[in-house]
Measured scan of single mutants.
Amino acid sequence: QIFVKTLTGKTITLEVEPSDTIENVKAKIQDKEGIPPDQQRLIFAGKQLEDGRTLSDYNIQKESTLHLVL
């Protein structure tokens, strides 16, 4: 699982696999929060994550925290 922290300070927990794409993660966030993926920007280690890449591409491991910017 990974954590996604929103600007409001809320933390969302997501069940993911390293092979999941960023697009996939955004879809999971939409399921939980109702935020359309095209409004979501995910930041990890100061980098904006691209939809077509996977979590493992960015070396995002379990218990990692991503930041969600709208």
Rank of each mutant, 00 (worst) to 15 (best):
Q1T: 15
I2A: 02
I2N: 01
I2E: 00
F3W: 07
F3H: 09
F3Y: 13
V4K: 00
V4H: 01
K5T: 12
T6P: 04
T6Y: 13
T6E: 04
L7E: 14
T8D: 15
T8Q: 12
T8Y: 12
G9F: 04
K10S: 07
T11M: 11
I12L: 11
I12D: 00
I12W: 06
I12H: 03
T13R: 08
T13A: 09
L14E: 00
L14T: 01
E15F: 15
E15I: 14
E15W: 14
V16G: 02
V16K: 01
V16M: 08
E17G: 09
E17R: 07
E17T: 13
S19Y: 14
D20H: 06
T21Y: 08
T21L: 10
I22W: 02
I22P: 02
I22H: 01
N24K: 14
K26L: 04
A27K: 15
I29W: 00
K32G: 04
E33Q: 06
I35G: 03
I35Q: 03
P36Y: 06
P36V: 06
P37Q: 10
D38M: 09
Q39S: 09
Q39T: 08
Q39C: 11
Q40C: 09
Q40G: 04
R41E: 13
R41H: 14
R41C: 15
L42I: 07
I43L: 12
A45S: 09
A45K: 08
A45C: 12
K47D: 07
K47L: 15
K47M: 12
L49G: 01
E50N: 07
E50A: 07
R53D: 05
R53P: 05
R53H: 12
R53W: 10
R53V: 07
R53L: 11
T54W: 04
T54Y: 06
S56V: 08
S56D: 10
N59F: 07
N59Y: 07
N59G: 12
I60T: 02
I60S: 01
I60H: 01
Q61H: 12
K62T: 13
K62V: 12
E63K: 08
E63P: 03
S64L: 04
S64T: 08
S64E: 10
T65N: 04
L66N: 01
H67P: 01
H67W: 09
H67M: 15
L68N: 01
L68I: 05
L68A: 02
V69N: 06
V69R: 08
L70P: 10
L70F: 10
